[in-house]
Design a protein around this nucleic acid. Structure first.
Length: 648
RNA sequence: GCCGGCGUAGCUCAGCGGUAGAGCAACCGCCUCGUAAGCGGUAGGUCGCCGGUUCAAAUCCGGCCGCCGGCUCCA
């Protein structure tokens, strides 16, 4: 057989040759240094036979792909180690059943069905066994089996593997990797010897995971690990993880007294403390102002609605599982509102609408309640009662794209003002094989096209995700990661041809005839709760001046400076700034420390000199140097920063 | 909802069979100080809740509640 090298040279090899033979044919440093190969753009190991005529580029430990190879092998080593771990407890090897063990960002995991639950406390022992397997420098062997034989070998031993084999497409080989009697069904690729795995890994945690991600299937235990090429990388990763935990909005929420979730009030129900509420109010004020500039009108609707309303909208009983159950009275029933849309539709339907009124943009900070599964609740980012910066735009079909673009503009403006640069856009379309969607195909196709065009024309890069649409229409979501890398959806823009139909709303066109409007559902923040959770972590609690609960702390050096400190506060308050004088009987150093810990952006120290000159000593979080300036000047500067909503 | 872990003062944590401790915070007093912790004192807990084992339970066992990590879900 022949293969080609990146430089175009051809190599004649025996049939069934692998990248290892390529390395040997090349000679020189290659037999020693090659760890794998990129074959026609795909990562191969040194063990898998090459396809005829492939372009083969060898890789070494210096290439980034190396990491993928040893992380994958490490997953196998983990599975082998778990078998040894239980063998020591007297269990036979086949009592440890295996699911899948893939490579993930930073490391790997393996899904395991063990005879006894694996707990975090077992991980150090399993790690030790893994290190031992690396030291034994075991050779990996790869081979393929015909389907029937492969199934036969796991029949009655490991039902998970039998099913995984059955899932492999007919045209793909069924390959196994084996080291020291430990064999695993695996498509590879791997490093050829366990000794080639850098010993810089750590098992981080164990968690439950359903087989094949299906909640109706049995649950296995997923053991997670991280692995890097060098000790430094591992240390750095673990350090960054610790740092990230310090940003956790649940921790900062308590330390900075922003919010409280009290089990006595209810799971997933947020109590906003005075300081957190200031941030919340400022964000809402910001959104209100920006929406007003863009032609939105504010409305207010109640927290409940009759069951009939939701039956008409189609939400009930579609989402009965995630709703608080209806409140039933003698001859009527109400639902705590899980969304604001139907209420806004009824405002639209209040009177006959003309095409001249469109687009009609109705906005509301609407609080909704959803009965999220208890295991899903998470600080502010997944709650049971939350406030959407919601709006519904009623427009003609021709206006959809343009309105959609305007919402993208608003969302990007909001993100930009807050310095949120690390987000991705995702367009969710319909899964053509599912029947959970309502509305006709032509509308769906049109809406999906309009969204993609709008995003492209706004220069927005996006990914397409099939099956991610709402049941009533396709959508564009803005997704961010929290401090620990978990993904959360913030802003969302959705096109809906369905609700106007269900509520039979119309507008009168220039032709005097009734026409069906289109609805755009949109919420740039998504929910204020989730947005604040993300924002707290984004700023690590150090809110920009305009959002900071306490913007200025005034620290008098001694008691006799209290009067001047109060004067300073008065000047700041008059300019609309939130300032506090620290009159506690503490040393100024202690006061400064406390305010710094509270992440107050500006601390003003006042003593004899300042009182005499009418100045303040400024300690500004964004500047290294301290400086003294006339009070009036400082007030003016701070007020401007707030007015312009500067990020500092 | 499911799997695993955790739950001791407002916070961070020690104690892990012989009836509860530290630091910080709070409160009181002294100190009046020039840019990240001055000193002394006081008060604060049915050890998440319920039940069991034991002469004796914060400590061991079971159930429940809550939280954490993941899975599933997410209009």
């Amino acid at each position: 057989m022949k293969v080609r090298l990146p430089d175009g040279k051809e190599l004649e090899l025996e049939a069934g040759a692998t990248a290892r033979e390529v390395a040997e044919a090349l000679g020189g440093r290659w037999p020693k240094q090659a760890v794998g190969a990129i074959v026609d753009g795909e990562l191969y190991d040194l063990l898998k036979p090459l396809p005829e005529g492939a372009v083969v580029q060898l890789i070494t430990k210096k290439d980034p792909e190396y990491q993928h190879l040893f992380r994958h092998t490490l997953a196998h080593v983990l599975a082998q180690a778990v078998r040894e771990f239980f063998a020591k407890k007297g269990y036979p090897p086949e009592s440890v059943k295996l699911g899948v063990g893939p490579v993930i960002e930073h490391g790997f995991y393996y899904d395991i069905d063990a005879p006894e639950p694996i707990s975090d406390a077992d991980l150090p022992e399993i790690e030790k066994i893994m290190h031992d397997i690396l030291k034994r420098d075991l050779e990996l062997r790869r081979y393929e089996l015909p389907r029937e034989e492969a199934i036969r070998r796991y029949q009655g031993v490991d039902p998970y593997k039998v099913e995984l084999i059955q899932d492999i497409p007919e045209n793909e080989p069924i390959s196994f990797y084996e080291q020291e009697g430990f064999t695993d069904l695996c498509r590879g690729p791997h490093v050829p010897k366990t000794g080639m795995i850098p010993p810089h890994f750590k098992l981080t945690h164990v968690a439950g995971a359903y087989f094949k991600g299906d909640a109706s299937r049995p649950q296995m235990q997923r053991v997670y690990g991280v692995a890097f090429r060098s000790k430094e990388e591992l240390k750095d990763y673990l350090w960054r993880l610790e740092e990230a935990k310090k940003r956790d909005h649940r921790k900062l929420g308590r330390e900075l007294e922003l919010f409280l979730i009290d089990p006595m009030v209810g799971k997933g129900l947020v109590l906003w403390l005075p300081k957190g509420n200031i941030v919340r109010e400022e964000l809402m004020r910001f959104m209100r102002e920006e929406q007003q500039k863009r032609g939105y009108q504010l409305v207010t609707t109640p927290h409940i609605g009759s069951l009939e309303l939701y039956k008409t909208s189609g939400h009930y009983p579609y989402y009965a599982e995630s709703q608080f159950p209806p409140m039933e009275l003698e001859d009527e029933a109400y639902l705590l509102k899980p969304m604001n849309c139907p209420h806004h539709v009824r405002i639209y339907a209040f009177k006959k609408r003309s095409y001249r009124e469109l687009p009609l943009r109705l906005a509301e900070f609407g609080t909704v309640y959803r009965y999220e599964q208890s295991g899903e609740l998470h600080g502010l980012t997944r709650v049971r009662g939350f406030t959407q910066d919601d709006a519904h735009i009623f427009c003609t079909p021709e206006q959809v794209k343009d309105e959609f673009k305007k919402v993208i503009e608003l969302t990007l403006y909001v993100f930009d003002t807050l310095g949120l640069k690390d987000f991705r856009a995702r367009i969710g379309t319909r899964d053509p094989n599912s029947d959970k969607y309502v509305g006709d195909d032509a509308h769906w196709a049109l809406a999906e096209r309009q969204i993609q065009e709008a995003a492209s024309e706004m220069g927005l890069e996006y990914t397409l995700e099939e099956g991610d649409a709402a049941f009533y229409g396709p959508k564009l979501d803005f997704v961010v990661n929290d401090a620990l890398g978990r993904e959360w959806q913030l802003g969302t823009i959705q096109v809906d041809y369905n609700l106007p139909e269900r509520f039979d709303i119309t507008y009168t066109g220039p032709d005097g005839e009734p026409h069906r409007p289109v609805m755009i559902h949109r919420a740039p923040f998504g929910s204020i709760e989730r947005f604040m959770g993300i924002l707290i972590e984004h700023f690590a609690g150090e809110f920009p001046l305009w959002l900071a609960p306490v913007q200025v702390a005034i620290v008098p050096i001694t008691d006799r400076h209290h009067a001047y400190a109060e004067e300073v506060k008065k000047a700041l308050s008059a300019a609309g700034l939130r300032a506090e004088v620290d009159q506690r009987p503490e040393r100024m150093q202690a006061k400064i420390r406390d305010w710094e810990k509270q992440k107050v952006p500006v601390i003003l120290v006042v003593g004899d000199r300042e009182a005499e000159e009418g100045t303040v000593a400024v300690r500004d979080r964004r500047k290294k140097e301290r400086y003294t300036a006339p009070l009036a000047e400082v007030v003016q500067d701070l007020a401007r920063r707030v007015r312009e909503r500067r990020l500092e």
